[in-house]
Write a protein that binds this DNA or RNA. Sequence first.
DNA 1: ATAGGATTAAAACAGTTGTTTGAATACTCC
DNA 2: GGAGTATTCAAACAACTGTTTTAATCCTAT
Lengths: 240, 240
Amino acid sequence: MDTNVVAIPELRGAAATKVRLLDAAESLFMEHGFEATSLRLITAAAGANLAAANYHFGSKEAMFEAVLTRRLDPMNQERVELLDRFERESAPMPLGCDRILAALFIPALRLARDPALGGNNFLRLLGRAYADPAPFIRRFLSEQYALMIARFKAAFGRALPHLSKKELSWRLHFIMGALSYTLAGTDALKIISELNPLATDNDEILLRRLAPFLLAGLTAPLPDLSDVTREFDAEIERGR
Amino acid sequence: MDTNVVAIPELRGAAATKVRLLDAAESLFMEHGFEATSLRLITAAAGANLAAANYHFGSKEAMFEAVLTRRLDPMNQERVELLDRFERESAPMPLGCDRILAALFIPALRLARDPALGGNNFLRLLGRAYADPAPFIRRFLSEQYALMIARFKAAFGRALPHLSKKELSWRLHFIMGALSYTLAGTDALKIISELNPLATDNDEILLRRLAPFLLAGLTAPLPDLSDVTREFDAEIERGR
DNA sequence: ATAGGATTAAAACAGTTGTTTGAATACTCC
DNA sequence: GGAGTATTCAAACAACTGTTTTAATCCTAT
C-alpha cells in the first residue's frame, strides 16, 4: 500500500517546495489516482508540511490542475504550432493525414522521452485523468483541449474531404481515445498479454506503433454501415 | 454533487436487497468512481441499511468485484462461445478478422442494447475500471480477461499470419484500449466535440462505427518502422 | 540591523470513511 | 406453532480526510 516515492528536499531555492510538491503529486496521483491520494502522502513525499499544499495551491483540486497544466499546456501549444508549421511548409498542397498525426504525436513523444519534462509518469497520469469521473477534472480537460482539438479537426477535415463531419468526429474521437488509453495503460498491458512481452518497451516505441495503426483506421474507406448493422442484428437476435 | 438515483425498494424476494445493492452500486460507481462512492450513498440509494453492504459482500472491494462479475463473466464467456461457433462454421477456412472482431463486439453490443442486462451503465463502468489505478481492480480484471484474450489472440494470429507475435500483441492492445475507452467515454466525447453532435447517439451506434475503424488498423500492412522513426527523430531534434 | 512580507510548522477542526457489534426482526423448515 | 437460521437495524468504532488557524521562522530589501 505504501510507496517508495520519498523525495529528498534538495532544492532550496525560492519556490522550491512548490515544485517538489508538484513532482511528488504528479508521481503519486499517477500511482493511486486523485481520490485515493491524500495530501498528507504528497506533502510527506515532498518533505513539506501538510499546510504547504493549501498554502501554495489553495485546494487539492487546484493542486491537481496545477500538476496537469504544468506539462499539458506547453504540449498542446506545441502541437498547434507544429501543425501550423507543417501546413506552411506543405502549402499550397493540403497537409496529409500522416503529417497531421505526426503533429499530434511528436510533442507527446518528446514529453515521453525527456525525463526532465516528466517522462512517462505524466503521460500515464494524463491518460488516467482522461477517464476520471470527477466533474472538475473533465471540465478542466475539456477547456484545456478545446482549442487544440478544434484546430486538428479542421486540418483532418481538409485532408479527408470525403468524410462527413460526423464520421470525422467519430474517428478523431477514436484516435484520442486510443492515444490516451495507450498512454495510461502501461500497467493495463498485463491484462492483455499474460507473458507481458511488451513490458520492456517504453511509451516511445508504443507511440511509434500506435501511429500507423490509427492512420489506417483514419484513412479507411467509408464503411457500409447497413451491412455491418444487418449482420450484427441477425447475430444478436439469434442469441436471444 | 448529489444524484437522482434513488431506487425504490420494490423487490421483496429472498435475495432482493442484494440485487438492489448491486444495481445501485453499478450506477453510482459508474458516476463517481470507486473511491469517491461511499457505502452510505450506495445503501441509501438501494433503500438498505449501511451494514447490509458488508453483510452481503464482506467489503467494499468485494462489492465492486461482484458488480463487475455479474455482467462481465457472462459477456466474456459469450465472446469465447461465439468465436468457437464462428470458427466451426468457417472450417476448414480460417476465420477472417472481421468475424473475430464481430465475436468480440457482439456480446458487448447485446449488453449495451438490453437495459435489463445493465445497458450502457455497466459498459461505462467497465471502461472506467479499465483505467482505474487501484491494484485490486487491475488484478481482478487481469484474471477475468486472461482466458478470453488468449483465445482471441490465437484466432487473430491465424487470421494474420504475416504479423509477428509482438506486432499482434500491440494491435490487440490498441483494440482493447480503444474499445474500453470508447465504452467509458460518453462524457469524454464533450472534450472532443465542443458542439457535441454525437451526444444523441448511444453506445450501440458508437460500437458499429468503431468496429470498421479498428478493422482497418488491424489489417493494415506492416509499417516501415525505421522510416517513421527517422522522421519523428528528426523533428524532435529540430525542436530541441 | 531591522522592519515586513513570505514561508513553514504544529495543532486542531469538523466531517466522512469502511467496518464491526449486538440486539431486534423476518423468514423457513420440521 | 416454534426452533433456528438469515437478515435487518441503529449505534458506535477508530482512522482518515481536506482545510483552517495561530504562532514561529526565514528571507529579502531598506
